[in-house]
Design a protein around this nucleic acid. Structure first.
Lengths: 164, 164
DNA sequence: ATAAACATTCAATAAGTTTTGAAAGTATAA
DNA sequence: TTATACTTTCAAAACTTATTGAATGTTTAT
């Protein structure tokens, strides 16, 4: 397989994967491109390589910064900004887990807590309370695992894998 | 809080959560409704409660069956079909993990394997190979954890949580 | 202060996804 | 077999999300 073909294929696949992960395609593709480039790239270069508009690239680069998986780099003598992806896959997984925890687990726990306060003693209400309590308990457990994962180091994780 | 309000709130929140999980809103909302109802519901009843069209309800009930998180129930003397959600949260988590593994991890591993076969000895190619290899190795580890999780029982999981 | 180089915003548009509902299909009962 | 009850399909419409690119804002160099 040609390098150009392989590169396209990877960027494409990463974009698709992103979509089923709440990360939009452009964002995931830019990330993929930065992942496979050792040097940092300017917005211009990303536009060029991925054939995306300036606005789109700018917006999604900022989103990547926001997720903490891409960093800005200044080059001496250069005015424009350059961007580089953190190449540590472990760190990437941690950052993504962290963001998803914040954006998904936390809000659902909040709602589950709230609706627990439903009034009444009817059958429907009892069932409702029972089910939402189970979900809440489980969510707390997941939250707990995620928290530990996020705070842990790579070694901890690999040791855990061994144990399984 | 009133039962009706709590119910709406929960169904709403579950729908939103679903969206960031690759599960469409209607599908997640139907699932939420079935989760909080002990008895099975007919398509008609779901339509009524969620104010959705027949086509939408039918389509998404089939998707839920497909994901293995909702089951058909036949009632004697009744011609129509009824649907019930599995109330075991643990089992739900397992089923969802199973489907997501199949739909997401497996395809990306396949692509990563493929692009590993890229030809050339240039700097770009070497970097590309190194990065995609790292991603592949990590994906295999995740796949492995998921596989064990899917095949395990609830007890295993809770014991694991204790250890963390 | 001005110009040049670059970054950001945002309204318009395009693309993608979900939802509808009527029509077609299927199974059951009489 | 025919009518009825129910399910499935699918093209069109509604809705949502992503993308563009020109206009605006900001920084730096002269």
């Amino acid at each position: 397989m040609e390098y150009t073909e392989a590169k396209q294929k990877f960027i494409q696949a990463w974009g698709t994967l992103g979509s089923s992960w709440g990360i939009n395609k452009a964002m995931a593709q830019i990330h993929a491109l930065l992942l496979i480039k050792e040097e940092s790239l300017s917005a211009e270069e990303v536009m060029e390589e991925l054939q995306m508009s300036r606005g789109n690239v700018n917006m999604n680069l900022r989103a990547l910064l926001d997720w903490g998986i891409v960093e800005k780099v200044s080059k001496i003598g250069e005015r424009k900004e350059f961007f580089i992806a953190n190449k540590d896959v472990w760190e990437l997984a941690r950052q993504v887990s962290k963001e998803r925890r914040r954006r998904e687990i936390e809000p659902i726990i909040k709602v589950l807590e709230q609706v627990q306060g439903v009034e009444g003693t009817g059958k429907d209400v009892k069932e409702f309370k029972a089910m939402t309590k189970e979900l809440k308990d489980f969510s707390y457990k997941v939250d707990d695992v995620l928290e530990k994962f996020i705070k842990s180091d790579q070694n901890w994780f690999y040791k855990l894998l061994m144990k399984l």
